[in-house]
């Protein structure tokens, strides 16, 4: 299957990308690595009239130490996250989780920014960035703005991005504690997560859930229980509270809630084991 016809525009700079987006508005889609967009276009579930390729903007591919935070360029590929020594040292949850996205070929093309902007709740990295308290930097005709991850994911495939904006950077505050945990449960290694869990921190960790609703979600009840000194098992029992997971071919909502409880327990135990 092949995409419906569209016009391809390649941006040579962020400014050029922004002016292309300004010109074409809703009719344009941003193409980075293409591993979220092109599959949809091939199935004709996405039919943009214009595709703005930002894949050449090498200056948006970096992992930088900025003191309190790690700055990751939006076009940094999963493979680069996975192999970044800086991330392995300062934000190991992100580099570890990046190694579970798709398959090796997908990780050679797919980018952090693309994965976040796509807003798929079954995606791993949005939950990771949410758990780590990341901030997303978007540039548009009105300049740059910073959006906390907690406000970024709005509903199924909907984010805070405006059609004329480009995500340029993701800032990850350096974790205060050493512990972290990541669980991805799927039927086959190449499948999307049936349920996933990202845990940042150990004694009072942030816990984010993959595929437990229309957006990545914080398991707030479980977090609170841990913060109050509750046992991991007791806290994990609350992991699905307040979620509305989907029922689909791979899992019923009930099963997802159960998985969330089991996986949160395991991920928090892992996090504490690493602390």
């Amino acid at each position: 299957m092949i995409p419906a016809p569209f016009a391809y525009r390649r941006a040579g700079s962020v400014d050029e990308a922004l002016s292309l987006l300004a010109e074409h508005g809703d009719e344009a889609k941003v193409l980075a690595g293409g591993h979220s967009l092109l599959p949809l276009m091939k199935l004709r579930l996405a039919v943009p009239e214009v595709v703005v390729d930002v894949g050449r903007l090498q200056d948006l591919s970096y992992v930088r130490d900025e003191g309190d935070a790690i700055a990751v360029g939006a076009l940094t590929r999963h493979r680069d996250l996975e192999t970044s020594d800086l991330l392995a040292r300062e934000a190991p949850l992100l580099s570890h989780a990046a190694g579970f996205v798709g398959d090796p070929q997908v990780r050679h093309r797919g980018t952090l920014g693309g994965s976040l902007v796509h807003g798929d709740p079954a995606s791993d990295l949005p939950a990771v960035v949410l758990a780590m308290g990341g901030t997303l930097v978007a540039r548009g005709p009105r300049g740059s703005r910073e959006i906390p991850a907690a406000d970024f994911f709005q509903s199924l495939f909907e984010t805070a991005m405006e059609p004329d904006e480009l995500l340029t950077e993701v800032r990850i505050p350096k974790p205060q504690s050493r512990g972290w945990g990541f669980e991805k449960f799927n039927q086959r290694a190449i499948d999307w997560a049936t349920v996933g869990v990202a845990v940042s921190g150990d004694q009072r960790p942030a816990i984010a859930l993959v595929n437990m609703g229309g957006t990545p979600l914080r398991a707030t009840a479980a977090e609170q229980a841990l913060a109050d000194g509750g046992s991991v098992a007791d806290a994990a029992a609350l992991a699905a509270d307040g979620t509305e997971p989907p029922s689909d071919l791979s899992a019923s909502a009930d099963y997802r809630r159960h998985l969330a409880r089991v996986l949160v327990r395991r991920a928090v135990e892992d996090a504490r084991g690493r602390a």
Binding site: P39, Q187, R188, A189, I190, D191, L249
Partner: peptide, 11 residues
Amino acid sequence: LADYAFITAAE
């Protein structure tokens, strides 16, 4: 082949 669970080497 995204929805049909064709077995891979990893399984």
